[in-house]
Write a protein that binds this DNA or RNA. Structure first.
Lengths: 196, 196
DNA sequence: GCTTGTATATTCACTAGTTGGTATACTTAC
DNA sequence: GTAAGTATACCAACTAGTGAATATACAAGC
């Protein structure tokens, strides 16, 4: 059976996802993950060689669902590319109000593992952020936006700033301000314009 | 003797600052802080009622030095407000290359404590970010920049995004891209202009 | 000058619980 | 019978926090 579809392994990753996101990787023991999955720790260590390995699996598993969430918000929004980009932030501000929202799991994990820059989970986070930036550049480009790569990067910076500011202030105004700034940047490059 | 200037307390906060910033608050034990300060753990618990209290003292102590660092970079830069803002990011990109750089301590602590939103250290981080935003709005305003408050917030978002992206990618290009975007936003509001 | 009292500051030794990880044995499917 | 998967029980190290004793400083009483 494939590593990815193994049902026991999936149960463990699902349990890890819930606990690691809710509490942070350092505050969750492997015992707690095993118990949440209804398995023993020894079984966990049969499927993962270490806690670090499990953390990386947790983030790898969030890459596609997160991208689809963002793309879904973008696609569902009415209006031009500026409105579609702003819709991502508007939706983000809405879900971030929920008490279970605890920021961006990729950024939080990178922050916890700042002393271990080569950690596989940090690399998984970097891959996800790169995937998002590439998807966004492609989406902007197919809406006839000039300099879509540079613009995508600026929007990613605003989004990561929004995640961080929301986490520290617990105030969605920051997320909406980022969305407004992002929409302004998009408009500045719509209809073939080019900036300095 | 004042709580702030007590030399033993200062030794403890200094030791905590080095260790917490280098390794993260969850990965540093109070024993390690006491040992680094050349004191026993029991003495630490004489000056601080808990580890959480010590973490908050660590961040409170970083507020002013960090603000002065940013203001110093801004003031020292040649040129208009756009260049001065961009200089903050340019300097940030430079110091972030150093292997000891581990991101923004305020944001990293908020990320580690995401499950405890009312934690005094998270509040200290929010205070610092607010202080920075206010200082920046004042500095922009005195350089005749319109809508300086809104602009300051946008720049703060870009800066927190730069901290986060740099931490996950370990690539200063992100910091410079944020600086470029920030300078563009400043220019759009220079000389009495106003935007949408 | 000496003693005594008191608040501050510091240490040693300890607890009770948790941590990531493992040695060994059992169970089930083929 | 063999191999994959799961369980029980365990370990040595580490964790935040504490109890009791001690050391230092400094002032008051005489």
């Amino acid at each position: 059976m494939s590593e990815k579809t193994n049902p026991t392994r999936k149960r463990l990753v699902d349990a890890a996802t819930k606990l690691f996101y809710a509490e942070g990787i350092g505050r969750v023991s492997v015992d707690a993950v095993a118990e949440k999955a209804g398995l023993t720790k020894r079984t966990l260590y049969y499927h993962f060689k270490s806690k670090d390995d499990l953390i990386a699996a947790y983030l790898d598993g969030r890459d596609q669902p997160n991208l689809e969430q963002m793309a879904g918000w973008f696609d569902a929004a009415e209006g031009g590319a500026d409105k579609k980009v702003e819709a991502i932030f508007t939706n983000l501000a809405r879900v971030a109000r929920h008490p279970k929202w605890k920021g961006c799991g990729f950024l939080r994990t990178a922050a916890e593992l700042a002393a271990m820059p080569g950690h596989p989970a940090v690399k998984a986070g970097a891959r996800h952020k790169t995937n998002f930036e590439k998807w966004l550049a492609g989406a902007l480009s197919s809406h006839d936006i000039a300099q879509s790569k540079m613009l995508a990067r600026e929007i990613v910076l605003l989004m990561d700033g929004a995640f961080s500011s929301m986490l520290i202030h617990h105030n969605p105004d920051y997320v909406n301000a980022a969305g407004h700034a992002a929409a302004t940047l998009v408009r500045a490059r719509m209809a073939g314009k080019h900036a300095a």
